[in-house]
C-alpha cells in the first residue's frame, strides 16, 4: 500500500535512498532516519522557523514538507552548509557578535540568513529584521543576529 514510499534524494551532496512512512515529514526524516540532528523541531506548524532548511536551493520549513515530497530533490541541512563552507562567513560573524545563545534556533536562523545574503540582500537593518521575522529566537534580542548578517554583507561586498 502507499502508506510507505520509496524515495531517492540527495542530502548534503550524498545520494540517499529510503522507504519512509507517507506521513513522515522532511525534518523528522532527516533527524531520525539520517541522524542529521542539526535541524530542530520547534513547533511542527511552520511558525517558529527552527526547522528551516534548503531544498533545491530554496529555504523551506522542514515540518511543512513530507519526506516523500523531497523525492528527487537536493536537500541541504546545517551540517551540509557547514561542511561545504557555504555558511563559514555567517558562522564567524554569529560567533563574533554572540548572535546565538542556546543555539536551538541557530541552524534555521543561519539558513534564513544565508538565503538573504545569497539573494543579494542589502545591509539594511529593517530589511534584515523583516527577512528573519519568520525565525523565532527566545534568547537574543535579535540585534546581534542583525549585526552579524550586516557584517557578512559588508565584508563580502567590499
Amino acid at each position: 500500500m502507499s502508506r510507505s514510499i520509496d524515495i531517492k534524494l540527495r542530502v548534503n551532496g550524498e545520494d540517499v535512498g529510503a522507504t519512509v512512512p507517507a506521513r513522515l515529514n522532511l525534518v523528522d526524516f532527516l533527524r531520525e532516519e539520517l541522524c542529521l540532528t542539526g535541524s530542530h523541531v520547534g513547533c511542527e506548524h511552520g511558525v517558529c522557523g527552527a526547522c528551516t532548511l534548503t531544498v533545491d536551493g530554496d529555504t523551506v520549513r522542514g515540518c511543512l514538507m513530507l519526506a516523500t515530497q523531497a523525492n528527487g530533490k537536493e536537500v541541504t541541512t546545517i551540517e551540509g552548509l557547514a561542511d561545504s563552507g557555504q555558511s563559514t562567513a555567517l558562522q564567524a560573524a554569529f560567533t563574533k557578535r554572540n548572535a546565538l545563545q542556546c543555539g536551538f534556533c541557530t541552524p534555521g536562523m543561519l539558513a534564513s540568513a544565508l538565503g538573504y545574503v545569497n539573494a543579494g540582500g542589502a545591509a539594511d537593518r529593517d530589511a534584515i529584521r523583516q527577512h528573519i521575522s519568520g525565525n523565532y529566537c527566545r534568547c537574543t534580542g535579535y540585534q546581534s543576529i542583525v549585526d552579524a548578517i550586516c557584517d557578512v554583507i559588508k565584508e563580502t561586498r567590499t
Binding site: 511552520g46 522557523g49 528551516t52 530554496d58 529555504t59 523551506v60 520549513r61 511543512l64 514538507m65 534564513s112 538565503g115 538573504y116 523583516q130 527577512h131 521575522s133 519568520g134 525565525n135
Partner: peptide, 12 residues
C-alpha cells in the same frame, strides 16, 4: 506578496 508570511513559506 511581501506581507504574506515569510520566505520559507512563500517558497512552498
Amino acid at each position: 506578496l511581501p506581507h504574506i508570511a515569510h520566505d520559507a513559506v512563500r517558497n512552498r
